[in-house]
Structures are given as C-alpha cells and as structure tokens.
C-alpha cells in the first residue's frame, strides 16, 4: 500500500481507525458472548430440572486435566498481554516471541483436550444417542455429555481459530509490519484471545467442579 500512516481512505486519521477497529472487535465479542450464552442456558435448564445430574455426571470428567488446561490458558493470556504491550512499545522481536509462546500454550491446551476426548470416546461417555457407558450414571447423563461436548467443542474451535489468527499476527510481526504507531491487529487479536480464555474459565467450574 505504501501508506505510512496505515489508515484506510475513509478514516480521517490512524487513531480514528484504531478506535473503530477496537469498537468493532468489542461488538464482535458481545456477539460471541450471546453465542455461548445459549449453551449456558441449556446447561442451566438441565441443571435446574435435574439437580442431581451434574453432581453424578461431573465425576466422569477428569478435573486434574481440566485444571491443568485452565492454568495453561491463563498463562497464555499472560503471554498474550505481554506480547501486546511489547507491540505497543514497538518491541517487535519481544512481541513475536511472546506471541509464539501463546501459540505453543494454545497447542498444549488442544493436546490435553485431545487426550480427554479420546478417553471419553473410548469409555462411551458420549452425547445423546451415542452414549454407551457400561454402567448407569443418571437417566439424563447423555444430556450432560451433549452439553459438555458441544460447549468444549465450540470452545475448541475458537481455540483453533485463535491459533490461526495468532500465527498470522506472528508472521506479520516477523515481517516488521507493526510499529508503536500501528499495532491494531495485535491488540484486537489479544482481546479475542482473552475472551477465549474467559469462556474456558466459566466452562471449567460449571462442568468439571459441578458438585
């Protein structure tokens, strides 16, 4: 583009564009909250109608792996926040390294999640009609695993999406596209990543610690 100020023609200044992009991202996050809200409502309804369901079924989730993943994601939020700060200060190299660590932590999360899923699939702790565990847990246990798989699955898709965007931001940082005057994509990706972590922070106690 060759434009030193990095702002599109319909904005009066780079600052105005930065503000607009950030507001756009916040509106997007509000939309994301509502997307997950439906599932949280489904969870709440099944929980209210079957108070003992969550208590019985949550024992079949591995809270140690869940807790590890919580720590992993919180660490990734920290590295992301530090990466954004570095980008704001124009420390490109530091920012790139921190983003890379964030990507690696996100991958660790997914690997742990993969082992959890494999274990559930092996045991037959599956949603709805696929449920085939060898002993009875609760009549509505299949619904618990429906909510579990859909919620964590959609969250997992968000993590994968986050990795893709982070990788793109990482490449752009390495190419030196960001300065202390222009770091909008880094900041916006950071906001998104914090949101993905936050969803997990609600998911973890609701599903794994629901006694």
């Amino acid at each position: 583009m060759g434009n030193k100020n990095h702002h599109a023609h319909h904005f009066e200044s780079a600052a105005a564009e930065f503000e607009a992009s950030k507001q756009g991202l916040w509106v997007f996050l509000v939309n994301e909250v509502l997307f997950f809200a439906g599932l949280f409502v489904a969870y709440a309804i099944y929980r209210i109608l079957n108070p003992d369901l969550m208590h019985e079924a949550h024992k079949y989730l591995n809270w140690k792996l869940g807790a590890t993943n919580t720590v992993v994601l919180i660490c990734s939020s920290l590295t992301m926040a530090l990466g954004v700060t570095a980008a704001q200060k124009g420390q490109q190299k530091k920012s790139a390294n921190l983003i890379l660590v964030t990507i690696l932590l996100a991958c660790v999360f997914l690997v742990i999640k993969y082992f959890e899923y494999m274990h559930k699939i092996h045991e037959g702790l599956l949603p709805g009609g696929l449920f085939s565990y060898h002993e009875p847990i609760h009549p509505k246990a299949p619904q618990f695993f429906s909510v579990y798989f859909v919620l964590t699955g959609l969250h997992g898709i968000h993590v994968i999406g986050g990795i893709v965007v982070l990788a793109w931001i990482y490449m752009r940082t390495l190419r030196g596209e960001f300065t202390d005057k222009y770091f909008t994509p880094v900041e916006c990706t950071g906001l998104y990543w914090h949101f993905v972590d936050l969803v997990w922070i609600y998911l973890f106690p609701l599903l794994y610690l629901a006694s």
Binding site: N31, E32, L34, F35, F36, A37, G38, L39, A42, P127, G128, G129, L130, F131, P142, Q143, S146, V147, F149, V150
Partner: peptide, 21 residues
C-alpha cells in the same frame, strides 16, 4: 443472531449424530 446460529447448529448436530439436546 448468534442465538439462532447456535440453535441451527445444535439442530444440525441433532440430525447428524443425535446429540439428544
């Protein structure tokens, strides 16, 4: 709109694999 997105997605999963929601 995100709520209908989730709803249609769940209906799709319901038809595809019987998630029982």
């Amino acid at each position: 709109t995100p709520v209908i997105a989730l709803t249609t997605f769940l209906l799709f999963l319901e038809r595809a694999m019987g998630i029982g929601i």
